[in-house]
Design a protein around this nucleic acid. Structure first.
Lengths: 140, 140
DNA sequence: TGATTCTAGTCAGTCTCCCTGACCATAATC
DNA sequence: GATTATGGTCAGGGAGACTGACTAGAATCA
């Protein structure tokens, strides 16, 4: 079986996501889904609008809206009115969301350490830089 | 916004998949979905069993079975009885599937050429090798 | 200013994906 | 020969994501 670059990107991605998801669930955050976390990851420090999250996660705003609603129901995020636009609201990470983020970050750090050990630090850092180039190219 | 390695893998992957999907659809193969193509990609030359495809694509065999059924309905694959096991059948790529594969492969080649140009050939090849290491590590 | 157009977001409906649980038929094991 | 394991399907359900239609407020422009 020949692996194209797509699969080479996808397989480690999927493995990482699965492990993070399990770690977060094991810590008691069992009411969060991957789709929700993909949106969640894109919330900026100052708070993000639903439309903004939809664009970044490349889903429709209806989908983003439903995912944010579920995150809000689970107390992972909170919505506050946007002071600059009465139509909009800002989605912000709530304390419970921050707690889950900490668990996820710890697991990601663990995985990165494993991968870094496997490839060697220099090669790993280079890989990150190269992927960053592709990210900029494709994440317009 | 800080990008963890997960997002750095996911964003280019997603961009590539979207482009390939669009190219395939533009060539007239509009009745195929991404989930179907993820299973399709894992069919080996000699034919693969449904259970095997499920394992490789990391979905349940029920899911794989339904996706193979849809691919069969669209004439992308065909199922033949497995001569070595009366319970099993072998899923094989059918002519229409091969035609769609050719379109997809051409688009992937185009994207790879762009990425190779962007990174430079040596750096690109190195990236592929590094990703292959991660793939082996995570695709047990 | 007032009318038009644009934008943020929701509601409703539908389809696909993917899961769990139950089950059947054949194969492997003891 | 009985039990257990494996390949696969059927049924049912929840989540994700889409399109289309709509409301409220913002921006534009005549």
């Amino acid at each position: 079986m020949a692996f194209n670059i797509g699969l080479l990107l996808y397989i480690p991605y999927r493995a990482l996501e699965d492990r993070v998801y399990e770690a977060v669930a094991a810590a008691g955050f069992t009411d969060i889904t991957m789709a929700q976390s993909r949106v969640f990851q894109r919330i900026s420090q100052a708070g993000s609008r639903v439309t903004e999250l939809a664009d970044r996660a490349k889903v429709t705003k209806q989908t983003a809206s439903a995912l944010v609603q579920a995150l809000e129901d689970g107390a992972y995020v909170e919505r506050v009115p946007d002071p600059t636009d009465a139509r909009a609201s800002l989605v912000r990470v709530a304390p419970r969301g921050a707690a889950a983020t900490a668990i996820a970050a710890a697991e990601i750090a663990r995985i990165e350490a494993e991968w870094r050990r496997e490839l060697g630090p220099a090669r790993y850092d280079r890989l990150i830089r190269d992927l960053e180039v592709l990210r900029r190219l494709t994440d317009e």
